[in-house]
């Protein structure tokens, strides 16, 4: 049963819910640009941008703590039920997941400057492609959150398979590359971690989509 759209008799309750939603949206849009920025910094070897992403992670962490504080307070004071309860439980999980996406973006950004195999990078469409899909998954998940749109949530989960598949392919490529160019092992290991981070970002976006689906329907996303 989705929200009827009617307001709570207690308007302060609505205000708290609105505050939580807007904080999560802010976290989401920051995480979205962190993923994008981290990949851009990587591909253009932009140290300044990389530093900005690392700073962004700190802001996202702070926002998560703030969201958590308001949610705990709302649960304690309002004793929420039904869709309100589901939304708050989902909000705790979604904010935690966005915080992780921020971490992974930071982790990618940290590796900027350690990579000299730019040829390899710019040739490597799969990694770029993976970064694009992961970024789109985050943004679609957040759009789904804002619009309470379960079709968009389902769309996010569909893309997770693409990311997983790319990760598997990349893994084979990287290992093969190391075998041929053992001198590049360290750098390629960085790339391997980056692809793993992107794969995890895809997973977290999927978790986020699942929680949106749960909020709206009271049920878990069907596994296809």
């Amino acid at each position: 049963m989705t929200n009827s759209g009617n307001k709570h008799t207690l308007s302060a309750f609505d205000e708290e819910m609105d505050k939580i939603r807007s904080l999560i949206s802010e976290m989401g849009s920051r995480a979205e640009s962190a993923v994008e920025g981290a990949m851009k910094a990587l591909l253009t070897n932009d140290m300044k941008l990389a530093k900005k992403i690392r700073h962004e992670d700190k802001i996202i962490d702070k926002l998560e703590k703030e969201v958590e504080r308001i949610i705990v307070q709302t649960i304690a004071l309002r004793a929420p039920m039904a869709d309100d309860l589901r939304e708050l439980i989902a909000a705790i999980k979604i904010s935690a997941v966005i915080e992780r996406i921020g971490d992974y973006s930071k982790n990618i950004a940290k590796r900027v400057g350690h990579l000299k195999t730019e040829d390899f990078l710019s040739d490597n469409n799969a990694l770029q492609r993976m970064g694009e899909i992961a970024g789109e998954m985050v943004s679609t998940a957040m759009e789904s959150y804002a619009k309470r749109d379960i079709d968009l949530a389902i769309a996010v989960t569909r893309r997770d398979d693409d990311v997983d598949q790319l990760y598997k392919e990349l893994f084979v490529d990287f290992v093969g590359f190391i075998a041929k160019h053992p001198e590049a092992a360290q750098e390629v290991a960085h790339l391997l971690f980056i692809s793993k981070n992107l794969e995890r970002i895809g997973d977290h976006s999927t978790t986020c989509a699942g929680m949106i689906y749960f909020t709206e329907t009271g049920e878990n996303l069907p596994d296809d």
Partner: peptide
């Protein structure tokens, strides 16, 4: 009923959105 009611009227009542 308290986590996932099936009727809008139930949900509005238990979540304090009643009238």
């Amino acid at each position: 009923i308290f986590t996932n009611p099936q009727k809008t009227r139930t949900q509005d009542y238990i979540t304090g959105r009643y009238g």
